[in-house]
Design a protein around this nucleic acid. Structure first.
Lengths: 340, 340
DNA sequence: CTCCATTCGGCAAACGTTTGCAACAGATTA
DNA sequence: TAATCTGTTGCAAACGTTTGCCGAATGGAG
């Protein structure tokens, strides 16, 4: 049916091993022979059978990418970047979705383990122990989580949280709320900790609410509670929650940013589309995807288990404004930033 | 290294073929033997090698999913549904992104062809001829495009367009604009055609603008041109463009829906998050993903090439309102709808 | 008691590659 | 001239399964 290496060999009058080498070790075959083989291969429409190759080499040239929720707008840019980057290196990507379920994560890793050369575990919700266990069964790179000894790519959300708090305190806010994300999220813990420390250092109060599912309805539902705290600024685990809160506040007649400032995390595309546009901490998700792929692919070569931390950037838009203790000129400053 | 069928055979005192049958044809092996084999397999942590299996059966139990742009929020729900559905049937999904490039589409299909049992081609931008050609090389199901003889899953966007036009005309609009999507999109042609016919039948005028890239900035950029036409209502190729337009109009001080009504397509999550919330034609993307997987998997069984059309639904929100020829009571009616 | 059918399990070939080894020719060196 | 090296190719085993075929064992019917 399909054209195999054998057909190409016969058609070009060489042994199958020569055809094989033409593709997998070109320097071992006479240039003349090589072009001849390539020509007939092209003409016959030969495509190497990856299953056969995988069987003997033990390398599938596939990688697995496991995320909590494909539909969460945080992930698609990362998936896209990883896929494109991998393809450029002749790898294909299995994408799988765990629906935020830690149990599904383990099962998926195991199911995928045998048919990939490694797995990118993005924002895992399971425990460190479980991850370390899986690491023994299949090469792993963890994204958005730091575990000693495991290769990882993380965004510096701690820095992002500090920038956000500094921004808010600078605007004259003294009582902040942190809207927590899901249980099990390393990112959530980091943000909470960093924001808490920064607030304390700056002489502001930080009230922590949650945990919440990382979706907009959770943000919307939290509006009442947020108002009840008396805080004038909110930092949310992610943009979805921030946007939900934003709209819910406005629907209640609470002006943003006049009465309450809101800061999100991630800088998903939607954040620039809502009004007021959302001030948020931009994560380099695409870069993270690429870095993770590189790390996974190098992992085979040496035994190095690097850990990469990527910079985050506070993007100041229109959902943050002067607070009750605002210094003179704060408004102008924000306006200037926001214009970009 | 890894535990193979041979290890299991040795450990349970049977021949490898018995182990194989235990997994792939359980009814052919004595229940007693079977449980024994299963037990040792479990204990040894045996996992069948899919490459070896694929090599001999010719079936990889993988499927490919090719979309124009993973980061376009229209696709993730479909990818998610397809992936989950496929996994339930013990298939894994390769996801690939063409960046809206017709050439990349062809290459990707060819690259994937050998390591999948079939491919889901979503919203392809290439020509019908090219698709038919590829169809000869690998089982294909096309989503969002109708080609005679090819299995396909489409959303009934024509119906959606008619509903939208009827809604707008009913509100008293007599001059509409259609903001076209990308060249090569079947969906775009269908909407344009259906909207044009519906407008004509209802005695309204339809001005077609475009083509545009299906992104929010394209919608924003079109604002001037839209206003220049003098139309009072706009139907956009997708929600992203509609939202871009919406915000751009508001930024120019043009009230929505008071002066211009806007209708989108897709009902992406963002549409309920912007203000005013967007009236849009909801596509059953998740259902489409599942249907496409089913169709692809059945395709092997019989030679049937079904074509499924999925219903679309107009979701009336707050971006549409009475037009210049509004009948009495139109406002109240919209308000009632919108409340849901 | 023989025969036949049925159930079960073993044997070995096959799937399409890769790769260590050996063969050979021609070139280079001693 | 003999010995060694280098570049190119062929040979055959191996990767981990599936599956058609055959034989052994079992049990029921005649």
């Amino acid at each position: 049916m399909a054209v195999t290496i054998r057909d190409v060999a016969k058609a070009s009058g060489v042994h199958i091993s020569t055809v094989s080498r033409t593709f997998s070790a070109p320097h071992l075959v006479n240039p003349e022979t090589r072009t001849r083989v390539l020509a007939t291969a092209e003409q016959l429409g030969y495509r190497p059978n990856r299953a056969a190759r995988a069987l003997i080499t033990g390398r599938t040239h596939n990688i697995g990418l496991i995320v909590a929720d494909i539909a969460n707008p945080f992930f698609p840019p990362m998936i896209k970047a990883a896929e494109t980057h991998a393809r450029r290196r002749d790898y294909h990507v299995f994408v799988a979705d765990t629906d935020e379920d830690p149990v599904a994560e383990t099962e998926l890793v195991r199911a995928l383990a045998k048919q990939v050369d490694g797995i990118l575990l993005c924002s895992p919700r399971m425990s460190d122990d479980q991850i370390e266990q899986l690491r023994r069964e299949v090469p792993l790179v963890v994204v958005n989580r730091l575990i000693t000894g495991l290769p990882a790519v993380v965004m510096d959300v701690g820095q992002g949280a500090r920038s956000a708090v500094a921004h808010l305190v600078g605007l004259g806010h003294r009582h902040l709320v942190y809207l927590s994300g899901p249980r099990g999220s390393w990112t959530n813990r980091e943000i909470r900790r960093a924001a808490g420390a920064a607030a304390r250092a700056d002489g502001a109060e930080l009230t922590v609410l949650g945990p919440h599912q990382p979706v907009s309805s959770a943000g919307a539902d939290a509006a009442e509670t947020v108002l009840a705290t008396g805080a004038t600024a909110v930092l949310a685990y992610n943009d979805l929650m921030a946007i939900g809160l934003l709209q819910s506040l406005q629907d209640r007649g609470v002006a943003v940013p006049e009465r309450v400032s809101v800061v999100g995390f991630d800088d998903i595309a939607t954040s620039a589309l809502v009004r007021p546009t959302l001030t948020t901490v931009a994560n380099p998700t695409a870069a993270a995807g690429r870095a993770a792929v590189d790390m996974l692919l190098q992992q085979g070569d040496d035994g190095s288990t690097g850990q990469v931390t990527l910079r985050t950037d506070l993007v100041i838009r229109n959902s943050t404004g002067p607070g009750p203790y605002a210094p003179a000129g704060a408004t102008a400053q924000v306006a200037a930033y926001a214009k970009e």
